[in-house]
């Protein structure tokens, strides 16, 4: 019984949001505000169950000596973070923010270097003539490698803004725009695919879970 009731609730909310497609109306507004309000509360519940309780409270309970008392540092920083809500002490939250920003920056440098630049540039050093199987097969692979290398280089040139795009650089960056447009097109096609899939999911919910037509 509860299942049926809640399925109707879900269907009502789904249709309330879809009603926006006709025009903005109170049903949509209601559903939208419920969504925003409940997702905000969600973060609080998460913060408790996945952060404060296991990391701080249990950490304090189960650790001893140095490992226990060192937890005061992150606990204080965390409280500083919340000081943003108290105007006169708001400046303290900058300490906590500074810590997270510094960490993110430090982590970001090594990730970009080791995780992206080095392996990606390495993978671009492809042989421009590959001899594998028949002549036509080799030619196909070689052309693909050539296009890949060329495309990467000209795209990088397109984003090189330190010099005016004239002459050779101009030609390279014009070739770059061709690759960029093909890539944006492909990404756009994929984005359409993603959005449609979401609609398919909701339509399936309505006709399967709610109306039991299929």
């Amino acid at each position: 019984m509860a299942q049926v009731f809640w399925t109707w609730v879900a269907a009502f909310l789904t249709l309330a949001i879809f009603s926006f497609l006709y025009k903005d109306n109170p049903f949509y507004k209601f559903a939208e505000h419920i969504y925003v309000g409940s997702s905000a509360a969600f973060w609080f519940v998460y913060l408790w169950y996945f952060d404060i309780k296991p990391k701080l409270i249990d950490g304090w309970r189960y650790n001893t000596g140095f490992e226990k008392y060192i937890l005061i540092i992150p606990a204080v920083l965390s409280i500083f973070m919340l000081m943003r809500f108290i105007r006169p002490l708001a400046w303290l939250s900058r300490w906590a923010i500074a810590f997270t920003v510094g960490m993110a920056a430090g982590l970001g440098i090594t990730a970009a270097l080791q995780g992206y630049l080095v392996p990606q540039i390495q993978a671009t050093f492809l042989p421009l003539w590959v001899s594998k199987g028949s002549f036509w097969h080799s030619l196909g692979i070689s052309i693909n490698n050539f296009v890949l290398v060329l495309g990467t280089i000209v795209t990088i040139f397109y984003f090189y803004f330190s010099k005016e795009h004239k002459g050779t650089l101009g030609a390279l960056s014009r070739a770059g725009i061709v690759f960029i447009m093909v890539a944006f097109g492909a990404s756009f096609g994929y984005t359409v695919m993603a959005r449609i899939s979401l609609l398919i999911g909701r339509v399936y919910f309505l006709i399967h879970d709610w109306l039991h037509i299929v």
């Binding site: 990606q120 993978a123 890539a183 492909a186 990404s187 994929y190 984005t191 695919m193 993603a194 899939s197």
Partner: peptide
């Protein structure tokens, strides 16, 4: 992953 992020993974 979603089709929105997947193209970025081909590299």
């Amino acid at each position: 992953g979603t089709a929105v992020v997947a193209p970025d993974w081909y590299p």
